Computed example of a mutant assay.
Amino acid sequence: MSLQEFFLLLMSILTSVGGQFFLKMGALKLGRVNAANTVSHILSIATTPELITGLACYGFGALAYILLLTRVNLSIADPSVSLVSVFSVLLGSFIFKEPIPVTRLVGLSLIISGVILVVWQK
């Protein structure tokens, strides 16, 4: 993987993680959805800055991913982007104080190991 390809991959991952962060912030601002407030919550999505920012981050991440796919095989790009899950769990833990049980840590380490094996070049 060249430096440019690595940069595109990194941009795709970081913007997707940023999207996760801002969507969570916006969701916390909205509060819980129930039958009585579903319509108002749906309407509030369009006016909540954090949610709009999160969606924009996802858009930039998708653009970076598309550009990456013009240069790298899907069989390498897609598993590499699964690192978004790893960073999202860490973000949830450090920023939102969400617990990480041992089984989730094992799963995250399996994801990381899998990405290493997929991108490994002999």
Results as ranks from 00 to 15, higher is better:
E5I: 00
E5F: 02
F7A: 04
F7W: 09
L9W: 02
M11T: 14
M11S: 11
L14Y: 00
L14W: 02
T15R: 06
T15C: 14
T15V: 09
S16Y: 08
S16D: 07
S16Q: 08
Q20C: 04
L23P: 12
G26Y: 02
G26L: 13
L30Y: 05
L30F: 03
L30K: 11
G31N: 03
N34K: 07
N34I: 09
N37E: 09
T38S: 09
T38Q: 07
S40A: 12
H41F: 01
I42T: 07
I45A: 01
T47I: 15
T47W: 15
T48C: 07
T48Q: 03
T48A: 02
P49S: 05
E50H: 10
L51V: 12
I52T: 07
I52S: 07
T53K: 05
T53N: 03
G54V: 08
L55N: 09
A56C: 14
C57S: 04
C57K: 00
Y58F: 04
A62W: 13
A62P: 02
A62S: 13
L63T: 15
A64H: 14
Y65W: 13
Y65T: 15
I66H: 07
I66S: 05
I66C: 05
L67G: 12
L67T: 13
N73V: 04
N73T: 12
N73G: 11
L74C: 04
S75R: 05
D78F: 13
D78M: 08
P79Y: 12
S80K: 07
S82I: 05
L83T: 13
L83W: 11
F87E: 01
S88P: 06
L91P: 00
S93N: 08
F94C: 01
I95N: 11
I95G: 09
K97S: 11
E98V: 11
P99L: 12
P101R: 02
V102Y: 00
T103D: 11
L105A: 12
G107N: 02
L108Y: 14
L108Q: 03
S109Q: 06
S109D: 02
S109I: 08
I112P: 01
I112L: 06
S113N: 10
G114T: 09
G114V: 08
V119T: 11
V119M: 08
